[in-house]
Amino acid sequence: MRFTKEHEWAKLDGNVVTVGITEYAAHQLGDVVFVELPANGSKLTIGKTFGTIESVKTVSDMYAPVSGEVVETNSELEGNPALVNESPMDAGWIVKIKVADSKEYDTLLSEADYKKICE
């Protein structure tokens, strides 16, 4: 698993990267009440915003950790956005991206490096 300085995690399986927000981010945001998901098939560019996540108090952009095409979004979040708080690293995943270039994935932060950012 890899991480970004925007507090997202990414997990590569074959050529598909699953993306979510980290425990730290979920805790900082507080109760998530809405997640704006991209449409299937949209093309994402590394570092560019692809959606927003709203808690009671704040609105935050989410940034693509890698470039590629959206192949699936977590439809559970439409009815139950609180999944992001309950299980940010697993059931609260947000989007699956078919990567264009797996080298981008290798440039993301390791868990150890990400933890340093959160301190």
């Binding site: 507080g30 109760d31 808690s55 009671v56 108090k57 708080n85």
Partner: peptide, 8 residues
Amino acid sequence: PVQYTSII
């Protein structure tokens, strides 16, 4: 304090 546990 903005929140202790959860706003909800």
